[in-house]
Design a protein around this nucleic acid. Structure first.
Length: 116
DNA sequence: CGTGTGACACGTA
DNA sequence: TTACGTGCCACAC
């Protein structure tokens, strides 16, 4: 069993956002940070590394469209399964088409629940 | 209080 | 396209 310690409030918000990414869509680490308006891509990555196991972690990718290096094969398989638009011969996500752009309603529901 | 580390981002070559 | 340097933020020593 893995004990990643206790999730901080920031970690829980990150996980909440990731859990809200619709099937077939993705966000970059930077996107998540900017959505929450706190921390940065590296902080999001740290959270995912420690607590990402319970959320759709494969929907969080790098800004260049490549999934996490250490889990690349698994991530690409899952993304393909969800019909996420790929590019670069299927090794990268086509961010211009796959990036999730939350509607104002999505945002208020997300951030509203996290930051009343 | 300096230094290293990390599931990152970006410009330049 | 890949490789490298620099910036960034938080945290452990």
């Amino acid at each position: 069993m893995s004990d990643a310690g206790l999730p901080t409030p920031f970690a829980e918000q990150v996980l909440d956002v990731v859990a809200a990414i619709p099937r077939g869509r993705v966000l970059t680490y930077g996107d998540v940070a900017r959505l929450l308006e706190q921390g940065g891509p590296r902080q999001v990555g740290t959270v995912m590394s420690r607590f990402g196991g319970g959320v759709p972690w494969w929907r969080v990718i790098r800004a260049d469209g490549r999934p996490v290096a250490s889990l690349e094969a698994d991530a690409l398989a899952r993304l393909r399964r969800e019909r996420v638009p790929l590019a670069g011969g299927g090794s990268r996500v086509d961010l211009s088409r796959a990036r999730w752009q939350p509607s104002p309603a999505d945002l208020s529901e997300l951030l509203g629940g996290l930051r009343p």
